[in-house]
């Protein structure tokens, strides 16, 4: 089994999930509570990775982070490195690719919080930011957990985007799915089946845990 690839995938998925939570919660808040008419455009943008082929997304990310693009140039100036075929580049692509998997469950959970609870908090003199932290987030924990776990699992299994943006550099960008593909190409079916089975078990366990967790939380805090 390619432990190096597994460890890389886990690191990538963990970092992606952390970034997505930091970015996704404010965006989900904005999508849920903003009165702007044009927010459907942002909603469509966020959901785009669900329908776009990973190769298309990967292609555009590759163009956007290349050394001749503004983003790539700024990154090169700041760090001296390049984004394509690096772990950082892969991370950026993964964040974009898993965006809807965080934002949608979280936004759904936010929308499920009774608006009167927010108004009650505001009328008690508590700011919007503190209300978000003290009322919305605690009442949305099941949705936030779902978003985080789905993003983690989704990143763990991504293939097309990694291939486009990261390539196949051992220890840098060769993730589990690439490693399996490599093994199959090399007719090393034993290694491929081992790693595949591992990925299958991990994914199932993670999802089973999510559903179990949600059931418990919902039993304690019924959301109506």
């Amino acid at each position: 089994m390619d432990w190096q690839a597994i460890w890389l995938s886990v690191r990538l998925a963990g970092a992606t999930t952390a970034i997505l939570l930091a970015l996704g919660l404010p965006i989900a808040y904005w999508l849920t509570f903003s009165p702007r008419r044009w927010k459907f455009l942002v909603e469509a943008l966020v959901a785009l990775p669900l329908v776009l082929p990973p190769t298309v997304l990967g292609f555009y990310v590759l163009l956007a982070i290349g050394p001749r693009s503004p983003l790539g140039a700024v990154y090169a100036k700041l760090t001296g490195g390049m984004l394509p075929f690096s772990f950082q580049g892969l991370l950026l692509a993964s964040v974009l690719y898993s965006f809807p998997f965080t934002v949608q469950p979280v936004a759904a959970a936010f929308a499920g919080v009774d608006r009167k609870l927010l108004e009650a908090s505001w009328c008690l003199g508590v700011s919007r930011a503190a209300t978000f932290r003290r009322v919305i987030v605690p009442l949305s924990l099941p949705g936030i957990a779902t978003g985080a776990i789905l993003s983690f699992a989704h990143t763990l299994g991504e293939f097309g985007v990694v291939l486009m943006v990261g390539g196949n550099i051992s220890g840098v960008t060769r993730t589990v799915s690439i490693s399996i593909y490599d093994s199959v190409q090399a007719l090393n079916y034993a290694a491929a089946s081992q790693t595949s089975l591992f990925l299958l078990c991990v994914s199932f366990t993670v999802l089973a845990l999510t559903y179990a967790l949600q059931r418990r939380i919902w039993a304690v805090w019924p959301i109506n």
Binding site: K116, L117, E119, A120, V135, P138, L139
Partner: peptide, 10 residues
């Protein structure tokens, strides 16, 4: 004071 009191359930 809301009609249904809006107490924080958590």
């Amino acid at each position: 004071l809301f009609q249904d009191y809006a107490l924080f359930p958590h």
